[in-house]
């Protein structure tokens, strides 16, 4: 059985700037297997977020192919891409991106609403996801009432509640202190190990790097190093 969940071949991404183009990614070739805990590491402007966006079907490559769970990203219609994101890909953002007027419960429930799941099943799934991140007692709180660490845990629960095959985390610890960073990384590590979900990080945070099992280093839009490491025990 083919366990490749992400395949990138000769991927290049350019953005129009003025009369010309800015090349954000050049000739990227990568494969990620199911259950990996990998990180795209590199300084700001190296193309990490752009690559995550393409993998997450929020953007398309200018050249080359990006195949995610057997779907060629460039070939997907808006609807197919939305379906892929809704069912199979979870996102975690640096600034949490929680919906401010929703409660913790409603934020986590959001993706399931789009799947037309029954209210009972939704409730079970949301409470399970909140249990994974230790926030069952905050289900009725609004994001404005939570700490940064708690917000990011809600974002993890939101990304995990639909039991996706891939979770894309863009600088998930950038706004967190050390204690909270370790807490959420441990949570993600546990979910990766227990549920077999593939995690792909974009980061330049040393704390995250300690947990990664694979580090893909980017510089100026190119992969400069791709190494498999044993995560330090934390």
């Amino acid at each position: 059985m083919d366990d490749k969940v992400i395949q990138l071949q000769s991927l290049t991404k350019r953005f129009p700037v003025g009369n010309g183009y800015f090349t954000a990614l050049t000739d990227i070739n990568l494969e990620l297997q199911k259950g990996e805990f990998a990180g795209l590491v590199g300084p700001s402007g190296s193309g990490k977020t752009t690559l995550l966006n393409i993998i997450g079907s929020l953007d398309v490559p200018s050249e080359g192919t990006a195949t995610v769970l057997g779907n060629s990203i460039a070939q997907l219609s808006q609807k197919q891409a939305a379906h892929l994101r809704n069912h199979h890909i979870g996102f975690i953002f640096q600034t949490y991106n929680l919906l401010p007027v929703y409660t913790v419960y409603e934020n986590v429930e959001f993706a399931l609403l789009l799947q037309n799941m029954s209210a009972n099943d939704r409730r079970k799934s949301v409470m399970q996801a909140l249990e994974w991140v230790g926030l069952t007692d905050k289900e009725k709180s609004k994001p404005s009432m939570l700490s940064g660490g708690e917000c990011q845990r809600v974002a993890i629960a939101r990304s995990m509640v639909k039991k996706p095959q891939i979770v894309l985390a863009d600088e998930p610890t950038a706004n967190l202190d050390s204690k909270n960073s370790h807490h959420i990384l441990q949570t993600m590590q546990t979910l990766n190990e227990e549920l077999g979900v593939t995690f792909v990080f974009s980061t330049h945070d040393e704390k995250v790097m300690q947990y990664l099992k694979r580090k893909i280093s980017l510089a100026d839009g190119r992969v400069v190093k791709d190494e498999t490491v044993m995560a330090d025990s934390v």
């Binding site: 929020l58 891409a81 994101r85 809704n86 996102f91 953002f93 600034t95």
Partner: peptide
């Protein structure tokens, strides 16, 4: 804007 982006990331099409 961020909320709109989040909706799309969570699986809504832009038309939705």
């Amino acid at each position: 804007q961020k909320e709109i982006g989040t909706y799309v990331a969570l699986g809504l099409t832009r038309n939705q």
